[in-house]
Design a binder for these strands. Structure first.
Lengths: 188, 188
DNA sequence: TTATAGTATTAGATAAGTCAAATAGTTAGA
DNA sequence: TCTAACTATTTGACTTATCTAATACTATAA
């Protein structure tokens, strides 16, 4: 469902193609909703069938011509009603790295310490990547999305990316605490 | 993939049925990996076909008899190699509430403030629920999973649930900051 | 004894997501 | 001119997830 909503959301900024949408996802929302290329194009077709978006033209710069989609009035309404009716189920997350942490107790002590280090390292590189997005890639995002820096739609996108950064920092703290807990425990 | 791994993980604690697994998910990992009942049973069949788990018996308490599955040696190896090889893609999350935040700038100022309040409230109820899990339901989890309180597998499960609590708290902070930012901005 | 609630599993129909690869145009450089 | 890299979309096969509901057993209480 969130891919539908994500695509509607991007198209509410300006008319764009599947390729543009993929690029925007990659530079912003990819951490909290992955978007497969094939799935984007399929979802565009289905949103068009449902009358939530429509083909509004074609554009050719460097490379083959691309199909531009525009959100319809019905699409905007759908998006609004989605935003105005959040529910608890929207707070159900999918976090594969936490599933790993959950079951990491199946490893022996040495392996477990290695696992925690590996997670820490991956979490650090993600943090770096997201911080970059948050600071440096802001401009590229605003430009590609066609938004000025004081547009609320730009600001809300930045808030969400900010979450990614904060979330990594929270996880760093937790991993550090866990490691300390293990090391001060019974040593074998 | 994480449902496969989650089921293997639970079965590495003790032999149990699909129903038991569902109960354990609900009282622990449901926040970071939702488990559909039908999907659990289908995944059990497919793991059995692959030789990662096997039927080890039947049990009847109150209600109809249940089929107990046990993890095989091959299943344990699969689980180990999953835990010992974390990658960046395991850090790609799915967070529907953040997709909402991302696109919330499409709302007008008044609606946006309402949206942030609604998210805050939902986040608070989730926090309460997860805190409860973290404090009160620990015992029920340990008992259902057949783990003692000093078993590393119990401890790692508790760490992961701790993340849920911390994550809610981080989000509360972010939402508070965002709201302050809006309210001190240009008032219309 | 009848209804209800909880236990336990299965089936069917869709929907959504993943992965790999094919197709095809454009540009820039060796 | 050939090739490599980037742009842009589509297809097929498959896996995973979701939603609904059917089936059926047991225990408890009205």
């Amino acid at each position: 469902m969130s891919l539908n909503n994500g695509i509607l959301g991007f198209l509410s900024m300006k008319p764009m193609s599947g390729y543009d949408i993929k690029k925007l996802f990659n530079m912003s929302a990819a951490y909290f909703w992955p978007a497969d290329q094939a799935q984007i194009y399929r979802t565009l077709k289905s949103l068009e069938r449902d009358g939530l978006i429509e083909v509004s033209g074609f554009e050719q710069n460097a490379g083959p011509s691309k199909t531009l989609y525009t959100i319809t009035e019905r699409g905007r309404e759908t998006m609004r009603s989605w935003l105005l009716n959040p529910t608890l189920s929207d707070f159900v997350a999918r976090l594969p790295f936490l599933v790993e942490l959950f079951f990491s107790g199946a490893l022996n002590r040495k392996e477990l310490l290695g696992f925690l280090d590996a997670q820490m390292e991956l979490n650090n590189s993600l943090h770096e990547k997201l911080s970059e997005n948050y600071t440096e890639n802001k401009n590229a995002f605003a430009e590609t999305a066609g938004l000025s820096k004081d547009d609320p739609r730009y600001l809300s996108a930045v808030w969400a990316c900010r979450w990614g950064v904060l979330s990594c920092e929270t996880y760093t703290k937790l991993l550090t605490e866990i490691k300390a807990e293990i090391l001060t425990g019974t040593d074998c």
